[in-house]
């Protein structure tokens, strides 16, 4: 397990470095005076020169890149103050530390992503299991049909409809908002419930279909048939033998879907007017606030890489063959 972790983590470091280098050189090669942008309107040339020097923009691009990378590892000093170790620089537009802005917004996006993941895994896999259990019956047809219909919805289409039904016209629930789960677990749950369900809907359908088809495949495997033949109950074989095998391809797909999960969170933030990482990305990108944009992207890439490693670790728990190799 440990060698695997070390190998994966060092691979992640290399990828993060490459992504950083690629985006840095692309972003800093755009023909725009960043100091002018950071200074705002009605800025005197002297001020621009001071800012340029403070931000290190007067140096060659390779040196700037070195400073940026060193900042992430060791921290940097800016006129605004010291920027501790994972330093992603200072926002041109606001002058805040990029890391602080990201950490401020991240809990919301994390809640959305993980909450949505839990909802669609529980509902999607559950529905798939039921459909496979009741294969060929009306239940199966209804679930499969519903999954195709629901997967054709979009978050920005379903979101307002749900809001209209539950919030605007009936007042059954409040407008979605984010409260820290540490302050009020109940408020956090109720505030995020609509976004979770809406976001999960479009993923649920896909997982229902997949869970159903892999279950049906597994039920035709020889070891499953043998277990049934020697007299084990249908339910025991279904869950202990077939379900476990059916999880392996599903975990693979989860790994592939992680980045669309993050983008799903971005759309959900916009649909429900929540201020998370996605909104920060769009705001910074439209303002051409390059350090903030780079910071959000690198953070997003890091987040996805870490989730991927966790998903790979999950293989070892599901599939004993992986543990041996």
């Amino acid at each position: 397990m440990l060698p695997f972790l070390i190998r994966r983590l060092s691979g992640a470091v290399v990828i993060m470095f490459l992504i950083g280098a690629f985006t840095f050189f692309l972003f800093y090669s755009i023909p725009q005076d960043f100091a002018e942008l950071a200074c705002g309107k009605n800025c005197s040339p002297q001020n621009i020169a001071v800012i340029r020097e403070n931000l290190g923009l007067d140096q060659p691009i390779a040196a700037q890149f070195r400073d940026f990378m060193m900042g992430i590892v060791a921290g940097r000093d800016f006129p605004q103050g010291h920027c501790p170790a994972p330093c992603l620089g200072v926002s041109f537009a606001s002058g805040d530390m990029v890391w602080d802005s990201i950490i401020d917004r991240f809990p919301l996006t994390l809640s959305l992503t993980l909450g949505g993941l839990v909802v669609f895994l529980v509902v999607g896999l559950g529905a798939g299991l039921i459909a496979a259990w009741k294969r060929g019956t009306a239940v199966d047809k209804a679930l499969s049909g519903a999954s195709i219909v629901l997967s054709s919805f979009q978050i920005y289409l379903l979101g307002p409809i749900v809001l209209g039904l539950l919030v605007y016209s009936t007042g059954l629930m409040e407008n979605p908002k984010y409260v820290s789960p540490f302050d009020s677990p109940g408020g956090w749950f109720l505030g995020m419930l609509i976004p979770w369900v809406v976001m999960a809907t479009i993923f649920t359908a896909q997982y229902t279909r997949m869970s159903r088809s892999t279950m049906i495949e597994q039920l035709q495997e020889e070891h499953v048939r043998t277990a049934r033949a020697k007299g084990m109950s249908r339910g025991y074989v279904f869950f202990r033998y077939a379900w476990r095998g059916s999880l392996i391809p599903i975990v693979t797909i989860i790994g592939i879907d992680l980045s669309s999960l993050l983008s799903g969170a971005v759309v959900t933030e916009f649909t429900f007017d929540l201020a998370g990482l996605g909104r920060l990305a769009v705001e910074s990108s439209v303002n051409k606030d390059i350090p903030l944009t780079m910071g959000v992207m690198m953070f997003g890439a890091f987040f996805i890489l870490m989730l991927n490693i966790i998903v790979d670790l999950a293989y070892a728990f599901i599939d004993p063959r992986v543990r041996l190799s």
Binding site: L26, S259, L262, V266
Partner: peptide, 14 residues
Amino acid sequence: SFPNQLFFIAFMPV
């Protein structure tokens, strides 16, 4: 390995 939609957002204006 790029989280692509996030990168679409970031790349567009740049």
